[in-house]
Design a protein around this nucleic acid. Structure first.
Lengths: 110, 110
DNA sequence: CGCCGATGCATAGGCTATCGAGGTATGAAT
DNA sequence: ATTCATACCTCGATAGCCTATGCATCGGCG
């Protein structure tokens, strides 16, 4: 089994593909794109971002905006491959769950 | 956030809607329906079944098949409602993740 | 100036779903 | 009798995620 959880990393990578953002903005984007479904708390967000950075999938730099310092995260080049894998993995998972829920009626597809 | 995990309960309920099955058979059905994607180990399966029973969503009885005793699980009536909720919840989750992954480029659909 | 709310980043500790390893028992085959 | 396959079960560990909390800076206010 397994594969249900751990999707958050992929979602963050997906968001950062459009361009660098800082933590708060990432959370906002995630909320917006998911239609309000995903409300990621900071205690979840930052550890995941740091993990992604340690894995070389994002890079961060400090930026100063009107005195306040922000950490801006950007997707690394190799994150594109990882993102694609994650997405495909998600699609497989999603289809598998669909076919368990719905008994996959007539075999037209495929 | 949250909602990724805990899908397994819904999947088991879905499988038991077609009729009573014992543990091993449930695992086989799950594997078959998911196209081999879900290989639930016994250390995961049985605790979940027991939890579902404690919640009144399945009922079990011991059966004797050629000397070997099996525990056969059956979906309770109220499990239908729960299953529907779980499925809808899954669909929302699934759509939300899709729309984060794919920025929903052309606005043809929906 | 000193306080407060909002922004923004961060960590520690805990909860829960899932998993791996191990244990029990029966029947059939060797 | 030993081994294999079926079938059930439980305990302890792991991993993702969350709650609570803390720190620092800015802007407004008295």
């Amino acid at each position: 089994m397994n594969g249900f959880q751990g999707q958050l990393e992929g979602l963050l990578l997906a968001i950062l593909q459009q361009g660098p953002l800082h933590g708060y903005a990432i959370a906002s984007e995630l909320r917006a794109r998911s239609g309000g479904a995903f409300e990621v708390p900071e205690g979840t967000l930052y550890p995941v971002l740091h993990k992604l950075e340690k894995e070389g999938l994002v890079r961060s730099r400090w930026e100063k905006v009107s005195g306040r310092r922000r950490r801006v995260y950007a997707a690394s080049p190799q994150s594109q491959n990882v993102l694609r894998e994650r997405f495909e993995s998600w699609q497989r998972l999603s289809r598998a769950i669909d076919s368990v829920f719905g008994p996959a009626p007539e075999g037209a597809g495929d």
